[in-house]
């Protein structure tokens, strides 16, 4: 699989996919997309990068262990739920704020945080699996 063309294209392909995955994640609430799909796209990016260059560059690139990212995602999702303690509403009730940043109104919400959590869980778990299998490939 380590052909020249593949190895030349893979970094750009992977980074594009990551970028796309974030785009898909953020627009998910209003257009097709969301955390599940975003996470899967990002995980595929990592798998491609891993096939092209081996596992250790991928591990270096994402710095953290993928399962740690997954755990972080679950943590984020629970934070999104627990935030509803403060206004005293049931667990996981959606809360919205609209701060203005540079004159643009941003819609921030706990469902968004939750969706980012989903993204990380899916991304982390599947990347971890793919990398683990690729690693065995070479031993």
């Amino acid at each position: 699989m380590r052909t020249l063309i593949f190895r030349s294209v893979a970094p750009y392909l992977s980074s594009l996919m990551i970028l796309f995955s974030i785009f898909v994640l953020l627009r998910g609430h209003n257009e097709p997309g969301g955390g599940f799909i975003g996470g899967l796209i990002a995980a595929s990016a990592m798998a491609i990068y891993g096939i092209a260059f081996g596992v250790s560059p991928v591990r270096r690139a994402i710095r953290f262990h993928p399962m740690a990212l997954s755990g972080f995602g679950l943590f984020l999702a629970s934070v999104a739920g627990i935030l509803s303690v403060f206004p005293g509403v049931p667990f996981l009730t959606g809360l919205w704020i609209y701060p203005e940043v540079f004159g643009v109104e941003l819609a921030l919400s706990t469902p968004l945080v939750f969706d980012i959590g989903v993204y990380f869980v899916v991304f982390g778990s599947i990347t971890s699996t793919a990398l683990a299998l690729e690693e065995r490939e070479r031993d």
Partner: peptide
Amino acid sequence: AHGRNIVNVILVDFRGIDTF
């Protein structure tokens, strides 16, 4: 839920605890 993608709204808001 202020979301236009109904599927996503169900996933992250209406039935968030399932997704969790």
